[in-house]
Design a protein around this nucleic acid. Structure first.
Length: 201
DNA sequence: TGCCCGATTAACT
DNA sequence: GTTAATCGGGCAA
């Protein structure tokens, strides 16, 4: 049985949490699936929204771990993050892609596409599919309408450079499930394996 | 107040 | 491969 993720789960290093989120299950109001791609951001990282200190937009990042940080991207899309690390470390994991499993009909309706592969492959697409917007900023992740479950055993996790940023571009802080067809972009051959696969169940 | 730019996406050529 | 859409945040003045 999958285990519900507690707030304590999110209080460790943002990179540890990011790797362990690969293969975990994210549901929002009954829609969602397995997380296959995330990126880690820390306040010492020039690419992070929290790098230049607290503002009204990023205030949630400076609060307790285990809460949602949702921001508008390019004036059009919404992006979902999980606040991580010790409180005040202003760290977060950007959820970039999930494998659609639950609530497929609702996700297809909200996205306006039928191709399962394009439902949740990207941070903006994922939020549209799940119906997540700025209203969810600051919400707890361990209570409805959010539901998070840890993965069983280990996962085959690969790492590579993050996408769409212009600062600290070389840090390999994008993590993904090796070989998944639901990634927003494939990981290149130079991407490193960070966690070995295990015999299933 | 004004200006530039972005943790993106879809629709082009 | 390129680019429009679209708007709030952040910073300079």
């Amino acid at each position: 049985m999958p285990k519900r993720l507690s707030r304590a789960f999110f209080s460790r290093s943002v990179h540890d949490v990011a790797r362990e989120l690969i293969g975990a299950t994210l549901l929002f109001d009954g829609a969602g699936g397995g997380i296959v791609e995330v990126e880690a951001y820390h306040h010492t990282d020039p690419a992070a929204h929290s790098f230049r200190g607290m503002t009204p937009r990023n205030a949630v990042m400076f609060g307790a771990p285990g809460f949602a940080y949702v921001y508008r991207s390019y004036g059009i899309h919404w992006c979902l993050n999980f606040v991580c690390g010790p409180e005040g470390s202003a760290s977060a994991v950007l959820i970039r892609a999930i494998e659609p499993i639950e609530g497929l009909a609702a996700m297809r309706r909200r996205r306006g596409v039928s191709d399962e592969r394009l439902l949740c492959a990207g941070p903006g697409r994922l939020c549209e599919a799940l119906g997540i917007s700025g209203k969810q900023n600051g919400m707890a992740l361990d209570a409805p309408p959010f539901a998070l479950f840890g993965r069983n055993g280990a996962a085959d996790v690969v790492a590579g450079p993050r996408i769409g940023i212009t600062k600290a571009v070389d840090n390999p802080w994008r993590y993904g499930l090796k070989g998944s067809r639901f990634l927003s972009k494939p990981f290149t051959a130079s991407s490193g394996k960070v966690e070995a696969g295990f015999p299933k169940k």
